[in-house]
Design a protein around this nucleic acid. Structure first.
Length: 873
RNA sequence: GCCAGGGUGGCGGAAUUGGUAGACGCAAGGGACUUAAAAUCCCUCGAGCUAACGCUUGUACGGGUUCGAUUCCCGUCCCUGGUACCA
């Protein structure tokens, strides 16, 4: 008996072969159409996990398929190498972040190469390298020149534990994403990118480019984050000017309720909030209320049961449409960062205003009735009427539909000079300052004389200093690094200080896809010619968790760089034309309970063969299926799986167990299954090796074939067609693999090849097709078999098989026969037989006759080649 | 609350345009080979009824459209995400 399937031996050999032959290195001189395949690059934590295996296996299948289809494929890889874990390692273990990061990169690169992934390693980048971040500094300075970057004092999410500012995405329910510890609001001067300047363009991109090519969910989330809403701006004049301000502008989507305004609400953060009360007898009370509101954390302010509270400022403003004087309140539910931070309150038609008015006994004035016959009584209302209806008490608009009047009222405001139509966005500018060491330094110098001075371009990069000290809770190591902080002002030459904040790491990941096109370019962040050639990314793959963070920032940054002239406008405004978001890798959790009833999580190794815990001797229970994580002890180490079953089985399993966008439930038995399948393919080839090698290519003459031979030929071509359909664009790798398994099942039962030359040729054709189709999923075993069968070249570069339309055709079809829509039998009919013949065959069927006996046939429905339904009663 | 996506055997999942529900795999059961086990190979496998041909029922639940519905429409329940005082 021939050699057993030993994956580890063949895998290392073929990985070396691909690297030696540069199989997956991009050929810049190729004339073939380009295909840019990209998966989201990882943070180099040092350990590969199953999520990586899944993400990169999916991408590798697509890349390999495109190579085989003749595309000039660019499939690069790199590292999102700045970030907090490196600093934590420095604090906890005394290793320098740079050393730690580069050694992690080395380890992970080794692990990835063991997965047999086809990357162009010549293009590898690490964002922590000065050759990368120097360009980021340049982009920042150019944006600063153009006014697309600015500095402002802002309330930011501050983590006491990490001593840094966090992005909104990094704060979940008031606690940080990493430690789950409280995040407070703190006022700091921060650098911002003007993302809001691109709100409309970001929406256009969704409509014109991404719609239909990105998952609907992601686009929906992006649209709602941008939060475009049409409305009106209305100027409410203050009764008397305060501190030079004469009016309070508001944003409203309901100008139709203007005549129902009975008071005004300002956010506690509103610049006029305290000023209105200064010098009046209400000052103390207002100040106390503002202090109290600001001190409360965001989570509490956002929670459902947060009580609506407010305080009267003592001032009034004038409703422009009717001259009515209304009191100005500070209210804790008004948000400063939406609209103007001031709200015209219409208690009759807004639920929040209604509750507030009830609490503080403010008037409620109805200006919309549900219809002509129904009038609302303010005193009897228990909640605001927020639906559409007929306007009342609204002067010239009385009696009109409120919905239809919204636009006309906005125009009316504009005519009178009281405001007008406006569009408001929820999107905020992007705060990129981080009080952290392991990031790209923000290239700015502060001089007492010259204020904010950008670092001159010829002095870039501003290098991260190496000689810094790390302490657990000591704040930014950069700020304490004297040699870094002290510098001279580029303008006046006097003593000056450097900015000690570094960029949010989302800045690096916003343009890495552009850098890959010319990774060693030295005259700018990107070579414009390379961008024109390679962008956009044709297929991007990554986790759904980046739906609004990374994917929004990159879309913004791409446009920013384009506007700054780094590459031409002829390039698509969107960096990623197609997006696939893959699901998480999950596994059952196993646990026992401690004395307090809290779960004690177990790994598989903590459980003995009787299902008892080795930790505490209790019976181990099975918990929910959850995302693999360190804390739940339900992770599976890819290295262990690769050592036990081989890379091909590990890859095949993650592709076969679920479609890519679904969550995947890890099952060791499932890996057994695909390993068994690959072994069967291997053993079949070994057993029939001589016959397969000796067989001639099929000459197209079907006359000499056995029936089984004909069937096998047909199935081979049907399989090529089916697998191609599944892999091409649809990414249904699970069904593609299932079809390969079906073909294999038929091949293994096929026995006619020994005494029939035609059958032998057909068998060879089937096996070669099977190996070719499987090669993107399980490349190593397929290379090995391809070579054993003495086929020319590497299967990785052999053209994807093409099916023969005629060969795939069925000669007979199975007709389903129904009576009154119920299945009553099937009949074999020649392919292409007429509706009349089908009907005849159906009526002749024994079981059908039984069912229509004594009944009148009313109608016969025939679906050609498929089904006959007899309507009889 | 609002928005989106789901709900199919013991399990993961198929069914691409309204046309044979459950492909493929896992688990389970039976058998062959073996002194035995493992491995391998073969068979069975939604539920109920039947000796069997078959019949009934079944894609969360209740209705509807249709010759025919996992697929389309209306209503209900449940799950999973996203979002939450957005004026």
């Amino acid at each position: 008996m021939s050699a057993k399937y030993k994956p580890n031996e063949i895998e290392t050999r073929w990985q070396a072969y691909w690297e030696r032959e540069r199989t997956f290195y991009t050929d810049e001189n190729s004339d073939a159409p380009k295909f840019y395949m990209l998966e989201m690059f990882p943070y180099p934590s040092g350990r590969l996990h199953m999520g990586h295996v899944r993400n990169y296996s999916i991408g590798d299948v697509v890349a390999r398929y495109k190579v085989k289809c003749g595309y000039n494929v660019m499939h690069p890889f790199g590292w999102d190498a700045f970030g907090l874990p490196a600093e934590n390692a420095a604090i906890e273990r005394g290793v320098h972040p740079a050393g730690w990061t580069y050694s992690n990169i080395r380890d992970m690169r080794g692990q990835l190469q063991k997965l047999g992934l086809g990357y162009d390693w010549n293009r590898e980048i690490a964002t922590c390298h000065p050759d990368y971040y120097r360009w980021e500094q340049l982009i920042f300075l150019k944006a600063f020149e153009k006014g697309l970057v600015y500095r402002k004092k802002a309330l930011v999410n501050w983590s006491e534990k990490m001593q840094t500012v966090l992005a909104n995405e990094q704060v979940i329910d008031g606690v940080d994403y990493r430690y789950g510890l409280p995040v407070i609001q703190k006022e700091l001067t921060q650098w911002f990118f003007k993302t809001t300047a691109y709100a409309e363009e970001l929406l256009d991109g969704i409509d014109n480019v991404l719609e239909g090519n990105w998952p609907r969910r992601v686009l929906l989330e992006q649209r709602s984050r941008i939060g475009k809403s049409h409305g009106a701006r209305v100027e409410f004049k203050l009764e008397e000017a305060v501190d030079g301000e004469t009016a309070l502008p508001v944003f409203t989507t309901r100008p139709d309720t203007l005549w129902g305004v009975t008071f005004m609400s300002l956010a506690a953060e509103h610049p006029m909030a305290l000023k209105l009360a200064v010098g009046t007898e209400r000052e103390v009370e207002v100040d106390a209320f503002i202090q109290k509101t600001l001190a409360e954390d965001k989570r509490k302010r956002g929670s459902e049961d947060y009580e609506k509270q407010g305080v009267f400022t003592g001032r009034y403003c004038i409703n422009p449409v009717n001259g009515v004087k209304v009191p100005v309140y500070i209210a804790n539910f008004v948000l400063m960062d939406y609209g103007t931070g001031a709200v015209m309150a219409v208690p009759a038609h807004d639920q929040r205003d209604f509750e507030f008015a009830k609490k503080y006994d403010l008037p409620i004035k109805v200006v919309i009735h549900p219809d002509e016959n129904t009038a609302l009584d303010p005193a009897a209302m228990t909640e605001a009427f927020v639906d559409d209806g007929i306007m009342v008490n609204s002067e010239q608009f009385t009696g009109k539909s409120n919905r239809a009047s919204i636009e006309r009222i906005a125009d009316f405001l504009a005519e009178k000079g009281w405001g007008g139509k406006t569009i408001n966005y929820r999107l905020r500018d992007w705060c990129v300052s981080r009080q952290r060491y392991w990031g790209a330094p923000i290239p700015v110098i502060y001089c007492d004389k010259c204020d904010v001075v950008p670092v001159p371009e010829d002095q870039l990069p501003v290098m991260l200093p190496e000689d810094v000290t790390f302490e657990a809770e000591g704040g930014s190591p950069l700020a304490k690094c004297e040699s870094f902080v002290h510098t001279t002002c580029p303008k006046c030459g006097g003593a000056a200080r450097r900015e000690t904040d570094t960029f949010d790491t989302f800045v690096e990941s916003s343009w890495y896809q552009l850098r890959y096109a010319s990774p060693r370019y030295e005259d700018g962040p990107v070579d414009p010619a390379a961008i024109e050639k390679w962008l956009p990314v044709d297929q991007y793959i990554g986790g759904i968790e980046h739906a609004v963070g990374h994917l929004m920032y990159s879309r913004f940054y791409h446009r920013l760089m384009q506007d700054l002239g780094f590459f031409p406008k002829s390039v698509s405004p969107e960096p990623f034309h197609k997006l696939l978001t893959q699901g998480m890798v999950c596994k059952e959790t196993r646990y026992t309970k401690d004395e307090n009833g809290n779960p004690v999580w177990h790994t598989d190794d903590d459980i003995d063969e009787n299902g008892m815990s080795k930790k505490d001797g209790q019976k181990v229970l099975t918990g929910r299926v959850e995302k693999m994580s360190k804390s739940k002890y339900n992770g599976v180490d890819p290295e262990a799986i690769m050592a036990r079953y081989g890379v091909d089985s590990a890859r095949m399993f993650v592709l076969f167990a679920a479609p890519p966008e679904n969550d995947l439930v890890w099952k060791d038995e499932g890996v057994d299954g695909v390993f068994r399948f690959l072994s069967r393919v291997w053993n079949m080839v070994q057993q029939r090796l001589d016959a397969l090698k000796a067989a001639f290519p099929f000459d197209g003459n079907v006359d000499g074939l056995s029936d089984a031979g004909r069937e096998l030929r047909k199935l081979t071509h049907q399989t090529i067609k089916g697998v191609t359909d599944d892999v091409h664009e649809r990414f249904h790798f699970n069904t593609a693999i299932a079809k390969c398994m079906e073909l294999m099942n038929v091949i293994s039962r096929f026995s006619g090849a020994t005494d029939n030359a035609g059958d032998a040729s057909i068998q060879k054709e089937a096996v070669l097709a099977l190996v070719n189709l499987l090669s993107p999923f399980a490349p190593h075993i397929c290379e090995e078999i391809w070579q054993q069968l003495e086929q020319a070249g590497s299967i990785s570069t052999v053209a994807w098989p093409v099916y023969d339309e005629d060969a795939a055709k069925e000669s007979t079809v199975t007709i389903a026969i129904q009576v009154m829509g119920k299945m009553r039998g099937t009949v074999e009919a020649p392919a292409g037989c007429s509706n009349g013949e089908m009907e005849k065959l159906a009526l002749a069927h024994e079981n059908i006759q039984k069912h229509i006996e004594g009944k009148t046939i009313r109608k016969v429905i025939v679906v050609p080649g498929k089904l006959v339904n007899i309507v009889a009663n």
